[in-house]
């Protein structure tokens, strides 16, 4: 610890940066896309420049004005020059956001939290293969990262394997993007839990896509986003295939009310997920925390 003497030394006001972290910045909905029956993508522009600088995997606190605020990851890449959020209608605030129309105002605070670290630790293009595994709406926080990865393959980055699981074919988001990523060299595999007669693709758990995807687990990294159980299951399968747990990133979700580390709701053991997450390596500590029985 720092000694209590240090704890008791109050720094001078000048040493601290002032920040008004709780007031949203108004954005206007410039495009609204219905992705599935309950998932909507909003493209947002600030009423006044500048646009937000962010990294893929980070999140914003989105306000449906007068209703409340929720944490939603960005689903666009910074180089696309448009802030997009894909929202699943699961509660009062997300419902209000999904119902908003082009021209409506949305409050935005952010960006907050950690990112997918698309670039290598040295800050250049990562030459390892990247395995992206998404479940349901989990593809949204990964979408920007995939856009960056696809761009990077043209600059010498590793191969990209995109494995997507969904409840049923109609719940697969970003169909056009998936086609576009495929056209630009990514290997895309889809699977669903429940198939209708029109579906001629694969049926089964997303992990069944791992075995014949064709990546070299010992020289690749992974980015996982989806229900927590699905991420645990997938991470363990990747480790069994020989992947380094430090190279497996997961995006975690807890109740977030402030986004700035003050409200205490998003604790996961020693982590404050708004500050230390949402994207964390599935290494020793996180894997322990995620299997700890909480009920």
């Amino acid at each position: 610890m720092s000694s209590d003497r240090t704890l008791l030394m109050r720094p001078s006001p000048a040493a601290r940066e002032s920040l008004s972290a709780l007031t949203p910045i108004l954005h206007r909905v410039v495009e609204r896309i219905g992705e599935t029956n309950d998932i909507t993508t909003l493209a947002l522009e600030p009423l006044e420049p500048p646009s937000m600088n962010f990294r893929c995997g980070q999140f914003n606190m989105l306000s449906a004005l007068g209703v409340g605020e929720i944490a939603i990851s960005m689903s666009s890449a910074p180089h696309e020059r448009m802030l997009r959020h894909s929202i699943r209608d699961v509660g009062a605030v997300s419902h209000a956001l999904c119902q908003s129309s082009v021209g409506d105002l949305v409050g935005v605070r952010g960006p907050f939290g950690s990112d997918w670290r698309v670039e290598s630790a040295r800050g250049d293009v990562d030459q390892r293969d990247t395995v992206v595994v998404a479940g349901g709406i989990g593809l949204a926080p990964l979408r920007g990262a995939v856009e960056e990865l696809v761009r990077d393959t043209q600059r010498g980055g590793g191969r990209i394997f995109i494995l997507v699981g969904a409840r049923e074919p109609s719940q697969i988001v970003f169909r056009a993007d998936l086609e576009s990523w495929k056209a630009r060299g990514a290997k895309v595999s889809l699977t669903v839990d429940l198939a209708t007669s029109e579906w001629d693709g694969r049926v089964g758990l997303v992990t069944t896509l791992l075995a014949d995807a064709g990546f070299d687990a010992t020289n690749s990294r992974a980015m996982l986003c989806g229900p927590e159980v699905m991420m645990r299951f997938t991470a363990r399968a990747l480790i069994d295939l020989g992947m380094d747990p430090e190279g497996i990133l997961v995006s975690l979700e807890r109740n977030m009310q402030c986004g700035v580390g003050w409200c205490g709701h998003c604790q996961l053991g020693p982590l404050l997920l708004c500050r230390d997450g949402p994207v964390v390596p599935y290494a020793g500590l996180v894997s322990q925390l995620l299997t700890q029985r909480e009920r």
Partner: peptide
């Protein structure tokens, strides 16, 4: 220090 954040209209 835990707190809730609420909006009202």
């Amino acid at each position: 220090f835990c707190s809730d954040v609420h909006d009202t209209t």
